[in-house]
Design a protein around this nucleic acid. Structure first.
Lengths: 300, 300
DNA sequence: TTGCTGCATAGCCATTTCCTATACGCACAG
DNA sequence: CTGTGCGTATAGGAAATGGCTATGCAGCAA
């Protein structure tokens, strides 16, 4: 079945003559005539009654014309859908974020995106770095916010900001009154770290190599919030990213103290597939991050 | 836009790979690959994100696929409509009837058609012979029941039955007690006839040439029912077709008397365009007329 | 590295599609 | 009755299309 033949048929129904229909369709009369004959042959029915000196649609012809109109309408709507979708800032955008950043960045990021790209609807996928890498690769997410380094073939990144780490101790801990702490003071087996798989665990261990970190020990937490509660409960001290300690996450049960400069930190970046078709949406996210006011991290 | 490209796109959405989609569509991988590239170019958007080692639909791609499915569904339904319509006894049939036959034949004809072709839905168009001829010609009706002769180029006819005429007089009229009347007795200026345009008027004047028939006189009626009422009211006598005098149309205000044999009559026929595409429906009507029991006319 | 898989590209061929020219039938006018 | 105009069908040829095979190239697994 050819869409052109359907258009010819509808034109014939509207014009009531082969010649007029051909004119309307910008084809010659024989072209349209033959095309309709073929359509009838293909469907195995007679759509047009050809009489000496007069032609008209058959009863069935009218039914087919009606259905053909619907089909043509739906195909026209394909073009409309494509046209609407041409705006790269319109439609859904699937954004992955690592667990140790999501809760502390997203509320403000989403608010900023509403201003930068109000028609972009963010779907958030929170996970761990390794999984997000796969998601990115296979297109499950369009982009991801992760911590560098993030060197994956075919994936591009753009640094967003640096996030310093801070030491977290329970109220009344000997460190609690100090203004700054050197990283070498964070050591021993009472330092709580995240469980394996969270990239932040490795980043902390890199920053404070003297932490004792037997994997599977009771001094591991599933999430930053768990660790914070464990610190508050006196299980030990920890090192957490600044964003998880400021703003609405500040509380009275724990005390956070900056490291001595140069404070250990991680560089947070946006990552996306090289072939991603909406670079403008990537730009919008970068711009939205830059718009966040009073962030608990260091703008680049 | 090509329907094949839409099918390829949907197949790709289902299979997630060019090769598998090509296999499903029974075409080679390059064919499908190129077709989708062309579709993207035509729509001016990117539907598929091509990465090294991995391809996937874009957000917009999914939207277009959804719309493409609808369009393909509607085109498939065209074939279904055609398939259903292949039954020539299914669907609408527009039947024209002249005024002087319609009310007296249709009730029984419609009942008979319900048995012969229950899926044929009759649309009735009641009019005068000349108009029906045009309707037939231009396809406004599919067939017409008229009185012979009806010689029109491109129109075929099939005689259905002979309908004798009868003399109608008011109760108490001198003719009322006679068993038979010779046509020469029907004469003068108190014979009521139909107005010009009704073919039955000419048929009566042919049968009884001695009727005085100044056109536009007060002795003309618009319809058989009007004439019957005029006879009942004592305006004169008339000649009417037997079918309008029997059955439910028999009443006590007028008396109908047969003509002497050979009684004047008219031959009623079915007429249709030579090129009409559903001859089976024509056959069904002829058969339905033959099925009518106890008709007020003479089966051939 | 090597082979395998999967998509893109190139070149070729068959088919399709559209055109012009022409034939044919009908209607209308002279 | 005949010529002319209108409308559709048919025929033949040119151009465009759609399909194929062969091949290139990148990623991935062994």
């Amino acid at each position: 079945m050819k869409l052109s033949a359907l258009r010819y048929l509808v034109a014939f129904a509207d014009e009531g003559s082969f010649s007029k229909a051909a004119e309307r369709c910008h084809v010659s009369q024989p072209t349209l005539s033959v095309a309709l004959q073929n359509l009838e042959t293909e469907l195995g029915v007679s759509l047009i009654e050809r009489n000496k000196g007069h032609v008209a649609l058959t009863e069935l012809g009218w039914q087919v014309v009606g259905q053909a109109r619907k089909a043509l309408d739906e195909t026209r709507r394909i073009e409309q859908v494509a046209q609407l979708g041409k705006d790269p800032l319109h439609g859904n955008f699937r954004l992955g974020v690592i667990h140790t950043i999501g809760p502390y960045l997203l509320p403000e990021l989403i608010a900023a995106m509403k201003k930068v790209a109000p028609d972009t609807h963010l779907f958030i996928e929170e996970s761990m770095t390794a999984l997000l890498a796969d998601y990115l690769k296979y297109g499950t997410v369009d982009a991801a916010i992760i911590a560098l380094p993030f060197d994956i073939p075919g994936i591009k990144t753009h640094a967003l900001y640096d996030e310093p780490f801070e030491v977290v101790v329970p109220k009344g801990h000997p460190f609690a009154k100090r203004k700054q702490i050197p990283s070498c003071d964070v050591r021993g087996d009472d330092v709580l770290v995240l469980k394996a798989g969270n990239c932040f665990r490795e980043q902390v261990l890199d920053a404070c190599p003297e932490i004792s970190h037997a994997e599977g020990s009771t001094h591991e937490g599933h999430s930053i919030e768990t660790v914070r509660c464990m610190v508050a409960s006196g299980y030990g001290i920890s090192v957490l990213p600044a964003a998880s300690l400021g703003g609405i996450y500040r509380n009275d049960l724990v005390v956070s103290i900056p490291f001595e400069t140069p404070a250990p930190s991680r560089r947070v970046a946006l990552a996306w597939r090289q072939g991603f078709t909406r670079p403008q949406a990537i730009e919008a996210i970068i711009q939205a991050v830059g718009m966040i006011e009073n962030p608990s991290y260091l703008h680049l």
